[in-house]
Design a protein around this nucleic acid. Structure first.
Length: 338
DNA sequence: AATATATTCAACCGCGAAAAC
DNA sequence: AGTTTTCGCGGTTGAATATAT
């Protein structure tokens, strides 16, 4: 990696400071209304992009990065202001469970919210809320004592990310969720993990419940259709596949409920009569509700919903729906997930 | 009312990937 | 094909604000 404070011209091979990172004459800190106006007016006329040279063109004494950030997080007309609604919070929880700290991906599913906002909300509010409920915000599982160092030392080097602490399973071993691994492999070469991608499905079934409605069938199906590892690695690398994967995971409990309703209609006395509620509902809100998430393909099919591109991941498109009443067995499953 | 402490969130920083040359 | 530039991401910081003492 080059020193970001300087650039080397291809033609002259002379290193010169970049305006973007030079400290001289470049303003930092909070933006003034006049600056906002300059930036917003310029982008309205000329459009986004070419951030490095934009400040000069717009007459701003800011670096391009700062301009981009200000636009993306504050000035863009599509940015939604105000508190995070309960249905948004629920979706953040679900997506974080699947994706980890991939704020940009999460924000992409929640119209009007920025990655920065979601990250802040997570760090200041949601993670504390989870901890107060005895849930590890990294793993979405019940908090466990930290494992002793010898266990960590046995973890493969590829699982040690210096930027983020290890994610531990219930036995204190480090693991990555299937979704995390999928995301990693969007850019990582496949030989990083000699068990990939079959291990992805294995991980998914290991770490996501598969009983009583939380089946991993939709996840596994892609791996069970006679595809070679090479095919699957290629598949994993496109957003459609990741979209479908996440969509099915997000919606598993919704479909499970629908299946259960059908079952109950067929056999009224066959299932537990104990009525309990989802722990996710208790966990995230004082009031009880279950956010609806668009069914697969409806949310990201031919017709884009909520401004999302047609091949995008599921997005929040509905107001909260009434509580889903779950059986005892189903609640066990949910508790296992959080 | 004054001070200390906690919380929030806009903005910065460094890095890596992708695009451009 | 190799190098440079640009962009975007996630982690972190610190000023502003809220709350507690």
């Amino acid at each position: 990696m080059r020193n970001p404070s300087s650039t080397t011209s291809t033609r002259s091979k002379i290193t010169v400071p970049t305006p973007c990172c030079s400290k001289v004459g470049i303003k930092k800190g909070p933006w003034k209304p006049e600056e906002d106006e300059l930036l917003a007016n310029y982008i309205k006329k000329e459009g986004e992009g070419r951030w490095r040279t934009l400040p000069n063109r717009a007459g701003l004494a800011r670096c391009g990065k700062s301009c981009r950030l200000r636009w993306m997080n504050y000035l863009r007309p599509s940015v939604k202001r105000g508190r995070i609604a309960p249905d948004e919070e629920d979706l953040i929880l679900r997506l974080h469970r699947l994706l980890g700290n991939r704020w940009s991906l999460i924000a992409g599913r929640i119209p009007g919210r920025t990655d920065n906002e979601i990250k802040n909300y997570w760090n200041t509010s949601l993670s504390k809320k989870l901890i107060s409920q005895g849930i590890d915000p990294r793993t979405h599982r019940p908090l466990k004592p930290y494992p002793d160092s010898s266990e960590i030392e046995n973890v493969p080097v590829q699982n040690r990310n210096p930027k983020s602490p290890p994610v531990l399973d219930e036995n204190g071993r480090v693991y990555r969720t299937a979704a995390t691994r999928v995301s990693e492999n969007l850019t990582a070469p496949p030989n990083l993990d000699d068990q990939f991608p079959s291990q992805v499905a294995a991980d998914a079934t290991e770490y996501w419940p598969n009983r009583d409605g939380f089946n991993m069938g939709s996840l596994q199906s892609g791996y069970d259709q006679g595809k070679t590892d090479e095919d699957l690695i290629e598949d994993i690398g496109n957003e459609d596949t990741l979209s479908s994967l996440l969509d099915s995971l997000l919606n598993d409990n919704v479909f499970a409920y629908q299946q259960r309703q059908q079952l109950q209609q067929q056999n009224m006395s066959g299932l537990s009569s104990k009525l309990v509620v989802s722990s996710s509902q208790i966990l995230s809100h004082g009031n009880i509700w279950e956010a609806q998430v668009s069914p697969p393909m409806a949310a990201f099919g031919d017709k884009a919903v909520g401004g999302a591109p047609s091949n995008s991941l599921p997005v929040l498109t509905h107001q909260p729906a009434p509580l889903h009443v779950l059986t005892e067995n189903q609640t066990d499953v949910i508790n296992g997930m959080y």
